[in-house]
Amino acid sequence: MRTLAFALAAAVLAAGTPLAARTVSVTMPPERQLFKDAPGADLARGKCQTCHSSDYIFTQPPMTKAQWLAEASKMKNVYGAPLEESQLEPIAAYLVTQNGKE
């Protein structure tokens, strides 16, 4: 390969002192809590911020109830969200009040 020598993996000279392994500790800023009060809020607060913060939901494009139902079902079926089948509809009904469209 013609560009190999130039573009790839130029050997680093032994000159630079390697950085020493060390311990790094960080503190994350507090997360956002965005679910507003409305019927179904308790369900969403209980079920939809276990694995991620609620901003994942509010940064999505506004979605229809059917689309929110599909998202909630995906969370249950694909990512193993602990949801009863009967909880999906009420959650979708709530989410469409939070970030919905017709």
Binding site: A20, A21, R22, T23, V24, S25, V26, T27, M28
Partner: peptide, 9 residues
């Protein structure tokens, strides 16, 4: 992890 011990890694 929010803390990583580079020596133990």
């Amino acid at each position: 992890p929010t803390s990583i011990d580079g020596d133990a890694f």
